[in-house]
Amino acid sequence: LRLEVKLGQGCFGEVWMGTWNGTTRVAIKTLKPGTMSPEAFLQEAQVMKKLRHEKLVQLYAVVSEEPIYIVTEYMSKGSLLDFLKGETGKYLRLPQLVDMAAQIASGMAYVERMNYVHRDLRAANILVGENLVCKVADFGLARLIEDNEYTARQGAKFPIKWTAPEAALYGRFTIKSDVWSFGILLTELTTKGRVPYPGMVNREVLDQVERGYRMPCPPECPESLHDLMCQCWRKEPEERPTFEYLQAFL
């Protein structure tokens, strides 16, 4: 395994491009020591290896001592969030954005069929390849993070704006909380990567959403798509659509 080009840095580690087995181009995620327990990670990795779908980033291998390494397929255009905010983002029109959403829903419909939960679905965790191919990455890892700023769910590192209220408040993460996050991801797509709930801080978002506030229809977004977002944001988790439905609708 060779680490060649550093692609990015996040709160919990770095991402590199490299070569595996001398020939395969891969992405390598390294986790800061202390982010998660190697034992817990190894268990999760076994499950992650079983998830194989064309719209999920394929896991190739893991190094399960500290520092933990995760070796996955390489996606040339990086994260969907950076892609939307970058040069190419300007030229993306609604049909392409909807197609990308459908690809993500397709990957998540598979996660749904496998009775698995992602827990951290957002544009930053979707990767883009050639020809606007989108794949879901980092599934299941969020559960293992041991950082206090994260586990408190009120901490600075927790993605509260993407998280369903029952998950943020009571830790009830299910495929239905993933559906909520998918609704937020749809706003990221239609606004080219704007942060959700602009002008609001995490605490406010939690309070307002509890009181029934939902983001309005983004500019140039059809009402039918906003309606779909609002279905994803129904207060009762069981009233939210399935990913199978979302995939078919898109």
Rank of each mutant, 00 (worst) to 15 (best):
154 Q>H: 10
124 A>S: 07
143 R>E: 02
216 P>L: 08
191 T>M: 08
24 T>G: 15
184 I>P: 00
78 G>Q: 06
149 E>K: 05
163 T>D: 00
241 P>A: 05
232 C>T: 10
181 S>Y: 02
191 T>S: 09
25 R>M: 11
23 T>V: 14
214 R>I: 12
70 I>T: 03
17 M>I: 07
100 M>P: 03
219 P>M: 12
49 K>D: 07
83 F>R: 07
124 A>V: 08
115 N>G: 11
58 Q>P: 11
186 L>K: 02
181 S>M: 14
27 A>L: 01
125 N>M: 00
134 C>A: 12
140 G>R: 01
137 A>K: 01
112 E>M: 15
214 R>M: 09
84 L>V: 12
56 L>D: 02
98 V>L: 08
133 V>S: 12
110 Y>M: 06
19 T>L: 12
79 S>I: 02
160 I>S: 00
218 P>C: 14
101 A>N: 04
170 Y>E: 07
48 M>G: 05
70 I>K: 00
180 W>M: 02
237 P>V: 13
35 T>I: 04
81 L>Q: 11
226 H>G: 10
60 Y>P: 02
244 E>S: 12
164 A>Y: 02
6 K>N: 12
104 I>P: 00
136 V>D: 00
210 E>A: 13
48 M>I: 00
163 T>M: 00
111 V>F: 09
80 L>A: 14
75 M>F: 08
215 M>W: 02
218 P>I: 11
68 I>S: 10
120 D>F: 00
152 A>K: 03
171 G>V: 04
70 I>P: 01
196 P>G: 02
48 M>N: 05
23 T>Q: 12
49 K>E: 05
198 P>D: 05
190 T>D: 04
171 G>P: 00
25 R>W: 12
32 K>N: 03
70 I>F: 03
139 F>G: 00
144 L>Q: 15
194 R>D: 03
176 K>P: 12
222 P>L: 06
22 G>S: 11
238 E>P: 13
168 A>R: 02
36 M>E: 07
210 E>H: 14
113 R>D: 14
143 R>L: 04
203 R>L: 14
25 R>E: 09
211 R>M: 12
64 S>Q: 07
246 L>Y: 08
122 R>V: 00
132 L>S: 08
94 L>M: 06
13 G>S: 03
32 K>C: 04
172 R>K: 08
130 E>C: 14
26 V>A: 09
35 T>P: 11
41 F>M: 04
85 K>D: 10
101 A>T: 06
171 G>Y: 14
174 T>S: 12
65 E>F: 15
150 Y>E: 03
64 S>I: 04
95 P>Y: 08
18 G>I: 00
163 T>P: 01
225 L>Q: 07
155 G>R: 04
155 G>Y: 06
70 I>M: 03
141 L>Q: 02
69 Y>P: 02
113 R>N: 12
94 L>F: 07
116 Y>P: 00
91 Y>M: 10
101 A>F: 03
221 C>K: 02
226 H>N: 12
127 L>D: 00
184 I>F: 03
165 P>K: 06
115 N>Q: 11
104 I>K: 00
247 Q>K: 12
78 G>P: 02
210 E>G: 06
14 E>P: 01
105 A>P: 02
98 V>S: 11
106 S>A: 09
60 Y>A: 12
215 M>H: 04
70 I>N: 03
8 G>D: 06
108 M>F: 03
115 N>P: 10
71 V>W: 02
201 V>M: 09
189 L>T: 06
170 Y>Q: 09
186 L>S: 05
209 V>I: 14
10 G>K: 00
35 T>G: 11
69 Y>Q: 05
116 Y>Q: 02
214 R>L: 11
238 E>R: 13
76 S>Y: 12
30 T>M: 15
22 G>C: 10
220 E>M: 09
249 F>G: 06
226 H>P: 01
237 P>I: 14
49 K>A: 05
170 Y>F: 08
199 G>T: 11
174 T>C: 13
109 A>C: 13
115 N>C: 12
243 F>S: 10
176 K>N: 14
189 L>A: 10
23 T>A: 09
37 S>Q: 05
101 A>K: 02
234 R>N: 12
15 V>S: 03
198 P>C: 09
217 C>R: 13
196 P>E: 00
76 S>T: 09
214 R>D: 01
163 T>N: 02
232 C>A: 08
128 V>R: 03
79 S>Q: 06
203 R>E: 04
61 A>M: 06
223 E>N: 10
124 A>R: 03
49 K>S: 06
186 L>E: 03
57 V>L: 10
212 G>H: 06
80 L>Y: 07
48 M>S: 04
92 L>Y: 11
125 N>P: 01
12 F>N: 03
54 E>D: 10
62 V>C: 14
56 L>N: 08
231 Q>A: 11
60 Y>F: 12
23 T>W: 15
154 Q>T: 08
55 K>A: 13
52 R>T: 13
50 K>C: 13
202 N>V: 03
211 R>I: 12
152 A>S: 05
46 Q>L: 06
105 A>N: 06
26 V>K: 05
124 A>G: 05
210 E>P: 13
101 A>G: 10
110 Y>T: 05
